[in-house]
Design a binder for these strands. Structure first.
Lengths: 133, 133
DNA sequence: CCGTATCCACACCGATACTG
DNA sequence: CAGTATCGGTGTGGATACGG
């Protein structure tokens, strides 16, 4: 998904418009890969940038960096630069604010899992001709 | 926000890829105005198309119709056409599946409300110079 | 190793207008 | 009243490359 909600919300805040709390929350994790980043950091702890890359192999280097930057500016994750030898390693982890989002994301996970199972079963039945509908 | 998650998820389903339940759920209500539509229908019941238009005055006629159509095809809302006199009235309401999404949206509302209050207070304090940071 | 810039394709969404 | 088509501006995100 894209991210236009986030820009709209940012604009609203700049205008002193504090309406629509649910859109604000949605803006936190809509935007490609964000919900996955939060989920992984929430369930498995700290990751280095290159580790996140391997966790999300389809995410481009550029977008990952961009989304991590946005998550930082939204206060959801921390960044920690380690000067480890010749190269730099950057560690990311959830802030307390980021952690407070986990219950919602977990609920989304559960809802989606149930719904996907339903759809899958419907498709199988449909494919076998057991349901005409 | 935009809607590309939804297309990605639809594509995944077509490919038999049932991974990433949280992205699937996210795809249900990301897309401009969708979360507001679900919220209103969930809290206040059935609305006619033109009523939804007045509830969301900034939403264009076209996008509203499009998003409602998507919500129907996702199984979240029902459509009911009434032949009421010279003109047609179309009533929309949540399905049981749509209702099952309300706890998540309500949690998003609460999280956003709290967070917006925090931000607002920080800004006020910052504006008054009470916090340097 | 990590961040950012450029270029480009494409999807979204608004305004508008036309149909039933 | 409700749905759809067209056109055009704009934002998103991928590939690639360069800088720190």
């Amino acid at each position: 998904m894209t991210d236009s909600v986030r820009n709209i919300v940012i604009q609203k805040l700049a205008d002193g418009d504090y309406s629509c709390p649910k859109e604000f929350t949605l803006a936190m994790f809509s935007g490609k890969w964000k919900i996955n980043i939060i989920y992984h950091l929430g369930h498995e702890g700290t990751y280095y940038f290159h580790e996140i890359q391997t966790l999300l192999p389809n995410a481009s280097h550029k977008e990952l960096a961009k989304k991590l930057k946005e998550l930082i500016s939204d206060g959801l994750i921390n960044k920690n630069v380690e000067n480890d030898g010749p190269h730099i390693k950057v560690a990311y982890s959830l802030t307390d604010l980021g952690k407070s989002l986990l219950p919602i994301i977990n609920e989304m996970y559960d809802w989606g899992k149930n719904r996907l199972q339903e759809i899958h079963m419907e498709n199988v039945k449909f494919g076998l001709g057991e349901i005409k509908k």
